[in-house]
Design a protein around this nucleic acid. Structure first.
Length: 117
RNA sequence: UGAGUAAGCCAGACAGCUGCAUGUACAGUGCCGAAAGGCCGUACAUGAGGAAAGUCCGGGCUCCAUAGGGCAGGGUGCCGGGUAACUCCCGGUGAAGGUGACUUUAAGGAAAGUGCAACAGAGAUAUACCGCCGGUUUUACCGGUAAGGGUGGAAAGGUGAGGUAAGAGCUCACCAGCGGCAUGGCGACUUGCCGGCUAUGUAAACCCCACCUGGAGCAACACCGCAAAGAGGGACAUUUUGGUGGCCCGCCAGUCCCGGGUAGGUGGCUUGAGCUUUGCAGAAAUGCAUAGCCUAGAUAGAUGGCUGUCAAAUACAGAACCCGGCUUACAGGCUUACUCAUAAA
RNA sequence: GGCCCAUUGGUCAAGCGGCCUAAGACUCCGCCCUCUCACGGCGGCAACAGGGGUUCGAAUCCCCUAUGGGUCA
């Protein structure tokens, strides 16, 4: 993830929740806010209500891997927060991929020239 | 073959592509920096568990006094051993359960004292309702009695015989309980003999006895930087205030509180009561010796993703200062020893 | 990560080991009152987080588990 650094502080998350645009699907919610930087900042939220440490680690890793694979297509200069919603079964890699692609396109975050290559 | 008991082991593997963290090496005269150094890149090595979990105990470590005294509080509770220590482990004793292999066991003291024992029942730590026996002023009283009935979790040892007006440890035998002596054992205790003739239960109720126990926790603590403070207001003057924690003493300091303000970094952070092999001691837990090994260390938090093969494999579950235990969760598979039943030889 | 606390009807809650078949209030249901509704009156349904242990007897005492919450930089 060469163009992305982690989003760390609680007040940074709060700013994105309060001021940013969002879009939701079955398993995910994505928040986006312009950060006026050269890089993107990514925060992943998996609530303790979703399960124990192994389950939460699994979801977080799937989200992170999918973001890594489509990072080249995402526009730069934004703060992103991806929240996992409560579900009964852990979603698969391809579910996450499909939903993330859909949500980022809906929020106009995909760089079309790179995406068409 | 079936049923079971005990002890122990494994916790998907391999291959390909592609990511992450740490360490080591190398290079670019790339970027930042005064420098030390840091960032970026490539290669290689290593990279979660038997419970990492719950936080129920015990320690190491750090700070508070070098952890001191007394009271209070808390914990443990058959005996011996092991250990750094333990509410742990091993072996044994007693008791309970099982045909058995074996399992379970908070198992000191009720004769130091206090409390409690609802309802039922005549009576609950002492008693006389029905009854039995004797007597009389004969249909109800008095006396004796605790065999029998009934109540209860528990009714002043149990069974049998003698004895008696009827009965009773009143007497005897056996059993149980208590005390003494002896035997075996380090000991819990066992076995035997003798004695007196009876002592409700509850201590996971207060308590007594013995032993242990200072408090807090890596968000401890140490250092650096920024900011703040050093301004202002208030308290105290050694019988006070704070460190100090449930209290008192003792010790230490000369200041302390309010107000204002608080988004950083480094160390602690992994070589340790460590792991593996062999030998010796021991019944075992464990100890000693020898040889070899280095085996996660993150800081929004690293082990991931996809594909293929194996009959199937997403069981429970993710290190956060580190160890020793306990408890709880758990798919499937394997090994060893033993018991019972049935059959065959 | 560490240290603490709590759990009783749908909700808020009281409860000396036996008087507990568990107080009370709100809610809900039925009846009465009223022309009707509300208020009021009468009656009813409904709970000790789960599992072991101690005890004659446990909501209460002890242990384990689950869930919820607080606090520390």
């Amino acid at each position: 993830m060469t163009n992305t650094v982690p989003l760390k502080k609680n007040y940074e998350f709060s700013r994105v929740y309060k001021n940013g645009r969002f879009s939701a699907s079955k398993h995910l919610v994505v928040y986006v806010l312009d950060n006026k930087l050269q890089t993107n900042r990514l925060g992943i939220t998996v609530s303790k209500k979703l399960g124990k440490a192994v389950t939460r680690n699994r979801i977080r890793r799937l989200i992170r891997e999918n973001y890594r694979l489509m990072e080249g297509m995402v526009k730069r200069g934004y703060d992103l927060v991806i929240v996992s919603r409560k579900v009964d079964v852990i979603p698969s890699f391809y579910d996450i991929k499909k939903e993330m692609n859909y949500l980022l396109r809906k929020l106009d975050m995909i760089n079309t020239e790179v995406g068409n290559q």
